[in-house]
């Protein structure tokens, strides 16, 4: 330590006494309180991708529930004389090989796809969240059973598993009509889809259960179940929601693929997958591609909307990605 006259630029300097208040205990009340969900919602609202995908989804849901508002043409009335007819007034998307009105079928086909996607996601999320949360929270033999069980269902590739499952269902439950057909696909996809959510939920719970607020709640004497349901599961939800939103799109594509393989929805069901499958000869020849374009385009837009929504939700829920 030296103690001579300071060198140039190192002279003693004291700033004028300005506002160097003690760290204030004051709470900023200029804006309303914000929970994490509200903050996420605020971030979501600022993201144009969210508004873009959400508006598309609103339109798609409208089509799902009120197809008849948009078209009065029966999607099941075929007129072979119009086979492969080009778009024309009153039939803006033209006709397919059977002479069905492509516009009407595209509109009415939305229902099967969207409902399969939604239902499968809901079922998978519920099963996955609870199995994953219980396994992660209680550990021990319960964890072993759930984790190995998930491994078993995960080890069989989803598409192949769904094909085998549906072919089995075909034998047990041959003539199952519209809703039966839809539920069969949902069951096949859900039975083999849950492990994905289980793994995510389990991982999130394992991380959260060691956080200090959980120990603090334990020290209160709060029961395990209270801890699980009021502290751990709500905090584990964000990654689960994000995965679920993205996988919704994946299930819609899977349904189309199954229908294309002739094993998904029965041919009597009006669906994008069935129509794309039926357009196969046109694709091979390269003519009359409008038969393929409209159902495939509708499907792609729907899936894209869910994917974009998933991206936007992830950005909003993950503060790290928000930066």
């Amino acid at each position: 330590m030296h103690n001579h006259t300071p060198r140039q630029g190192q002279e003693r300097f004291v700033a004028p006494a300005v506002s160097s208040e003690l760290p204030a205990l004051h709470v900023d009340t200029s804006h309303p309180p914000e929970s994490q969900w509200k903050q996420a919602w605020k971030a979501l609202r600022r993201n144009w991708l969210f508004w873009f995908s959400a508006s598309l989804l609103v339109i798609i849901l409208f089509v799902v529930f009120f197809p008849n508002v948009l078209t009065s043409v029966d999607p099941r009335s075929a007129d072979l004389s119009h086979s492969l007819g080009k778009p024309q007034a009153g039939h803006i998307f033209g006709f397919d090989r059977q002479g069905y009105d492509v516009f009407s079928r595209t509109i009415h086909g939305a229902r099967a796809s969207v409902i399969i996607g939604l239902l499968t996601t809901i079922i998978v999320t519920i099963i996955g969240l609870f199995t994953g949360a219980l396994a992660g929270f209680f550990g021990g033999w319960l964890d072993t059973i759930v984790s190995r069980g998930a491994d078993i269902f995960f080890a069989i590739p989803l598409l192949l598993a769904a094909i085998v499952g549906l072919s089995a269902l075909n034998n047990v439950w041959p003539d199952r009509g519209y809703w039966g057909g839809v539920f069969a696909v949902v069951i096949a996809l859900a039975v083999f889809g849950w492990p994905q959510i289980t793994r995510i939920a389990r991982g999130a719970v394992l991380e959260i259960k060691h956080l200090e607020f959980v120990d603090a709640a334990r020290s209160l004497g709060a029961s395990k179940w209270r801890n699980l349901f009021t502290h751990i599961i709500p905090n584990a939800l964000p990654p689960v929601i994000v995965t679920a939103t993205v996988s919704l799109g994946v299930y819609i594509v899977a349904e189309a693929t199954l229908s294309f393989l002739g094993i998904g929805l029965p041919p009597s069901v009006v669906s994008w997958g069935n129509d794309i499958a039926a357009a196969q000869p046109q694709v091979r020849s390269g003519d009359n591609l409008h038969v393929l374009f409209f159902p495939a385009g509708a499907l792609a837009i729907t899936v894209l909307s869910f994917m974009l929504l998933g991206d936007a939700v992830r950005d909003a829920l993950d503060p790290k990605a928000r930066k």
Binding site: G249, V250, V253, A256, T257, F260, G273, I276, Q280, V283, R284, G286, L292, A296, L299, A300, I301, V303, L304, M307, L308, D311
Partner: peptide, 23 residues
């Protein structure tokens, strides 16, 4: 990337087959 995920693989397959194989 999102488009590729959103369009069923068989549609893409047929499309590419048509362009590179047939035409």
């Amino acid at each position: 990337s999102l488009t590729v995920i959103a369009i069923p693989i068989f549609v893409l397959g047929f499309g590419l087959q048509l362009i590179f194989g047939v035409q």
